[in-house]
């Protein structure tokens, strides 16, 4: 029953995605995700208990652990490991290749929807969330904030996003690492096309700085299957003037081989650096994709 609700929700979100109302979209998706789960189970990420210390003058009385006082007859103060919210930065690849989408929405639109959903989700969990749109340079940067109204700024920024030309994701990641003062979570939405090695270097840098890295590898179904049958002209979305006249069936096998090599390489890089990797196809239900990811995150947190 839940699945059908989510499918219906996805259908609606697809329509919403096309009309660009990210706020409504993210509301529907996040509510859809949370409505099927026990909230208390996933709210502990920001208030993790560390230890007790003896009460000293000046401490807030509300922090006294009265249960320990009852057992020891002395005042103890409860201390938490993180007293502040989680800081997450969503990095959206705005290269030309993200514009591709034939039978589904474009990879950029899909990523924008995912960003909007995650923003709302994280802000609802009182986490701070920021957004960086990266093309040739960092086109837009919203530092992580934890208050709910920050969501509006993120959504506005996403709605203005446009893909353009080639991207320099790797160097720009270095730039973004410098801007993040605290350790946090880096969520990268990219198709990985272009200079992946530079991107991988940037991600490594983020890991070295202690950030938790999540790579959402967004691909269109046509890119994953190459199901073209007619003689076609392929024009590059990133480099103007680059085009190839091909008979797709004759080169499909070679293409798929190259693609699979690439996907394997990206996944291997990510896992080797301790980053989470999730391959998303734009014909995949966004709610399913995000819930699948959150489940994985939760299971890892428990361990």
């Amino acid at each position: 029953m839940a699945v059908s609700t989510e499918q219906k929700s996805f259908l609606n979100t697809a329509a919403l995605s096309r009309i660009g109302n990210l706020e409504l979209l993210s509301t529907r998706v996040v509510d859809g995700i949370l409505s099927g789960k026990h909230r208390s189970t996933f709210l502990g990420g920001s208030f993790e208990f560390a230890n007790h210390r003896a009460y000293t003058a000046g401490d807030e009385i509300r922090l006294i652990d009265w249960k320990v006082y009852a057992r020891r007859d002395r005042y103890y103060i409860r201390q938490f490991e993180e007293t502040t919210s989680l800081q997450g930065l969503m990095v959206l690849d705005c290269s030309g290749s993200m514009e591709f989408g034939l039978s589904t929405v474009s990879k950029l639109d899909y990523s924008r929807a995912a960003c909007a959903c995650l923003s709302r989700l994280m802000l609802r969990q009182r986490d701070a969330v920021g957004l960086a749109l990266v093309g040739q340079k960092v086109e837009s940067y919203l530092p992580p904030k934890g208050y709910p109204r920050h969501l509006q700024a993120i959504l506005q920024s996403l709605e203005k996003t446009k893909s353009k030309g080639e991207t320099r994701l790797g160097p720009n990641l270095f730039d973004l690492m410098r801007r993040l003062k605290r350790r946090g979570m880096l969520l990268l939405f990219t198709d990985g096309l272009g200079d992946w090695d530079a991107t991988a270097d940037g991600l490594k840098q983020a890991r070295l700085r202690g950030h938790e890295v999540l790579v959402f590898h967004v691909m269109a179904p046509e890119e994953l299957t190459f199901r073209f049958n007619r003689f076609s002209r392929f024009e590059c979305l990133e480099r103007a003037g680059l085009k190839l006249d091909l008979d797709p069936p004759t080169v499909r096998d070679l293409y798929l081989k190259n693609l699979n090599d690439f996907l394997s390489k990206v996944q291997t890089n990510c896992t080797s650096m301790g980053a989470d990797y999730l391959l998303l196809s734009t014909d995949q239900d966004l709610g399913d994709a995000l819930s699948y990811y959150l489940n994985r995150r939760a299971s890892r947190a428990k361990h």
Binding site: M98, L193, C236, L244, D247
Partner: peptide, 21 residues
């Protein structure tokens, strides 16, 4: 022939593919 605005061009730039075009 149809024109496809294509992103994953790097997978088609293989020389063996270009020969078959």
């Amino acid at each position: 022939q149809e024109v496809v605005k294509w992103g994953a061009m790097q997978f088609l730039m293989d020389s063996s593919i270009r020969r078959r075009k």
